[in-house]
Design a protein around this nucleic acid. Sequence first.
RNA 1: UGGGGAAUCGUUCAAUGGUAGGACACCGGACUCUGACUCCGUCAAUCAAGGUUCGAAUCCUUGUUCCCCAGCCA
Length: 560
Amino acid sequence: MTQTTASNPTDFIRDIIDQDIRTNKNAGRLATRFPPEPNGYIHIGHAKSVCLNFGLARQYQGTCNLRLDDTDPAGESMEFVDSIIRDVHWLGFDWEDRLFYASDYFEKLYLFAIELIKSGNAYVCSLSPDEIREHRGTFTEPGKESPYRNRSVEENLNLFERMRAGEFEDGAHVLRAKIDMAAANIVMRDPILYRIKREPHYRTETKWVIYPMYDFAHCLSDALEGITHSICTLEFENNRPLYDWIVGKLIPANRPKQIEFARLSVSYTVLSKRRLIELVQKGYVRGWDDPRMPTVTGMRRRGYTPEAIRKFCAQIGVAKNDNLIDVALLEHCVREDLNERAPRVMGILRPLRVVIDNYPENQTEDFDCANHPQRPEMGTRKVPFSRVLYIERDDFMEDPPKKYNRLAPGREVRLRNAYIIKFESMVKDEQSGELLEIHCTYDPQTRNAPPADGRKVPGVIHWVSAGHGVPAEVRLYDRLFNIEDPGSEEDFIKYLNPDSLQTVMTCHVEQSLKNAEPGSQYQFERLGYFCVDEDTGAGRLVFNRVVPLRDSWTKIAAGK
RNA sequence: UGGGGAAUCGUUCAAUGGUAGGACACCGGACUCUGACUCCGUCAAUCAAGGUUCGAAUCCUUGUUCCCCAGCCA
């Protein structure tokens, strides 16, 4: 039977499109759009929609427009438009010359509203906001008709024109569709189409004091652009009858099909715009691009790749079930991609000084190290080795537990890409008892070779030459929240993970990283994937840990 | 409570009247100069109860649970 694969995903939306193409609807044409409101940065949930809409266009040789749904000037700005453009491009998609703004349709939409008034399908209502709410009724009681519902076409036209002209205060009047105040679906109880709002718009500035509502602007924008399949999230299901009603009255020949799918939720993070804004504005994170944020810009800075995000979006699929995707799947996709492309290097987070007693004082050797164990075409690099090294503090234990195969008194380990060394002694601070350094000897026969006597040395640890390594700052990230579904908690702030950022200033990385490019990713062997942060420069090297390597040792250690 | 949706392994997506399958997670093993990668294996699900049928996750009936809607937000 049909298998779901990344290259050929199947889902209910594609089933609908296949059906439409088979029956030659829209002359076999497919047109979608990605319609964000520019009042925030886009996040992984938007990425799902981006991959869906642009992916569909790619798959069916159709088109996907980028449209800024900017019908409410409050909170919208060019900064957000710019970020959206940048982020969608970065994700790997292009809309050619089809960049649109709902605000470019304001004049057309106004004319459509006039048309609706003339056909007796819309009226100016002068109830106050409170009165409108009271008239709307409840889930179980029908609404009451507005006393202004039966104004003449002439009066409506006159009032609406004057609304536009700025003759009235905010809230004095609204334009409403005349549908059915007794409709079981509350959306259909004479929904508001236009409101007066004296708020400068980032694009039209002060030209307009009336703005169309989503329900009016969105469907008509779709129809105007010739969208065939208008894909949105589940909460708009109730609005579909209104979508169809409006287009049916105004552009009936060109009615897009609205299809709803479940929005994405990811465990241990929040995705609602309101909550994301709160994190930024109240300073719980450093900004929209904080590497802990699920925003596209945050993930980019963290070191996630577009390929990984696209893979993730393909893996999670598209359905109508409410979902909470395990963040482990996202991390899996990131590791899978970075494992392929990230060059290997060695870096020490928390150094422990090691002196190789039998290694000549002033000698240095350059070891050729593979940049990728499975991809020889990625080449090698020279890594200097000398008498004094740093190893990871965790790679030595005075009194190791069972199964610990790293360095300990009396033990040997392989230094990755170098020699096998053997523990000889340790030096502690006489007062505090703190371990200062350890002394080892090396086996000269074991450079790039197994021990001559056939003995087994299972442990392999990474190292950096103390005289050659470069100091660096490393930022370790953990999940932003410490409960699975913080988005479902009203007081989500109290579930913030206090340890979501750990800054380590003691790091030493191999010298090949001295001029590493900001934005580039590496695997620090045995530790994880790291990305050069943009704070790097002027003698400062800063890394973000993208994601740690899978680690079976901590599980073993925890179990014992 | 009226309306609109959704219920399948721990999580997620499939199976469109004919062997309930994949991915992630988990657990076990092989390999290993990364306790990584890779490979192999185990565990594990049809919301419930009836009905139709040779055969039901799928069709019918009745329930149950969860999500969305009473912004001049989108």
